[in-house]
């Protein structure tokens, strides 16, 4: 290739968005791009084809990757394939690390409560407790509605239960305000199990 010293260098931003793509949202654009590159596009048989794992599984992992980098670090030792096999050395190490994490967390829970930032610790604990109450409240409410539909509750019972749940609902709102929590925050991320609610 001949040298073209006078050639204008393409700037970094040019390469990032050569078309000057019209989109406000970088995160969504990134996911779009990955989706298109990995799943769509022309397929012709070359000598080597890099086989990417089941795209749905990638999505599962991407969710974590895009949401938080630190979490992805944790996951990087994790296998996304579902073959039956022995645990590899890395996986064993990963599990050992996880176990250590659990022990460490266990040890630091009492410390967290008297942490230097009691307000924050308080909010964390409040979030956990309120999430569990909210879960129970929803489950029980569903059960009442089910029984109402089966007509196995008397009018007075319905009235009483209704008042109870309404009061509980109001109390929850109050507590959420006190601890500065949003509805959306009252959920638990159970990792690979998904969300609690």
């Amino acid at each position: 290739m001949s040298k073209h010293p006078q050639k204008i260098k393409i700037s970094e931003t040019d390469i990032k968005s050569p078309m000057g793509r019209l989109s406000k949202d970088e995160k969504v654009t990134l996911i779009d791009a990955l989706d298109k590159v990995l799943e769509k596009g022309a397929v012709i048989s070359g000598d080597v084809a890099i086989r990417v794992a089941d795209v749905d599984l990638i999505y599962l992992g991407l969710r974590v990757l895009v949401t938080s980098i630190s979490k992805a670090e944790e996951l990087s030792g994790k296998s996304f394939s579902n073959r039956e096999r022995e645990l590899t050395k890395e996986e064993l190490e990963y599990l050992a690390r996880l176990e250590k994490e659990i022990r460490r967390a266990e040890a630091s829970i009492p410390k967290l409560i008297d942490a230097k930032n009691p307000k924050k610790a308080e909010q964390g604990i409040a979030k956990l407790v309120l999430t569990l109450i909210e879960l129970l409240r929803r489950l029980m409410e569903k059960e009442v509605v089910r029984r109402m539909q089966k007509k196995s509750l008397s009018k007075i019972e319905i009235q009483k239960l209704g008042m109870t749940f309404k009061a509980l609902g109001k109390k929850m709102e109050e507590l959420k305000t006190v601890f500065g929590l949003e509805d959306e925050e009252l959920n638990l991320d159970l990792g690979p199990l998904g969300n609690l609610m």
Binding site: A33, V37, F80
Partner: peptide
């Protein structure tokens, strides 16, 4: 390509950049 998400993400982004 099966297991390392970071690798896939990085390489797929490069692929996309060249195509664009």
């Amino acid at each position: 390509a099966q297991e390392d998400l970071k690798w896939i993400k990085e390489k797929a982004q490069l692929h996309e950049k060249v195509v664009e």
